[in-house]
Design a protein around this nucleic acid. Sequence first.
DNA 1: TCCATATAGATGCAAATGCATTAACTTTGG
DNA 2: CCAAAGTTAATGCATTTGCATCTATATGGA
Lengths: 152, 152
Amino acid sequence: MTEKATPSPEAIKAWARLMRVSRQLMESAEEALKAAGLPPLAWYDVLHELAEAGEGGLRPFQLIERTLFAQYNISRLLARLEADGLVEKLPVADDGRGQTIRVTASGRETRRQMWAVYGRSIAELVGAKLSADELTMVSALLGRLRLPPAGD
Amino acid sequence: MTEKATPSPEAIKAWARLMRVSRQLMESAEEALKAAGLPPLAWYDVLHELAEAGEGGLRPFQLIERTLFAQYNISRLLARLEADGLVEKLPVADDGRGQTIRVTASGRETRRQMWAVYGRSIAELVGAKLSADELTMVSALLGRLRLPPAGD
DNA sequence: TCCATATAGATGCAAATGCATTAACTTTGG
DNA sequence: CCAAAGTTAATGCATTTGCATCTATATGGA
């Protein structure tokens, strides 16, 4: 009953801003990486998760949970990363279907190089535009827009 | 000199939230459209701009400015829209290169149907989560992150 | 134990995207 | 008036995405 079919003007505006700004910023960061001859952002996301996971690595399905990429997307992304020597696939003992993905030294190095560029983009695109308090407020507000884990 | 190479933790968090939430919400809205048997969001953006432009229509390059799509992207999207009878391409009198794109009655109807679903998504995904004041605050903060028109 | 069902990950094929280039004009400057 | 440069839009080709399906293994009952 509290469901509204038509959004308020404030909601429409916030939505439009969110979509437009996030796209602009993403493209801007992507551009900076490309200009530096580095791989796209998607690679960073995966390398980042794997780096955080450490020696134990992660199963592909865990990467899917963490990154929100589609299953086939991860599957192929990992194939590319492996072909580039940035990750390695290890068989997993107690589950013959699966594999464990671990970042290689080369993968860590690539991530480091990407962060030098990506981090600068973040600093310039958001860090330089809003105060720490404002950034915290943005995070808090956006946090309330997150979707519940799964509507299944 | 005021350039920071490394972003603050607040900036990183805000960035991460922005990217993740915008992607989630976008996908959610996209999903709702697909479930209703309607075309993707990109089509809505174009139909919306054209509907606002009225009888005069818009030139493709104007659509590019307004929607931020790449040139080749618009070119092909318009081809698809035309094939579906949602827009029509008219030669433009004073410039033999160009064309004017005008939305058809069918295009307006499709946009209307899409808005029924899309608007509901916006209402549920953001309108129901934050107050009007909070939404206004989000818009204002995000507004400060917009990129200057063109760094060319 | 054996079968039905579920889960992990890969893949064939169609559609969409990105990139570079091209074709068809317009505009500008001499 | 003409040549050079700029603009508008389309397109060939490679890469990526999306969808559905498929293979292989695991699990949970009868």
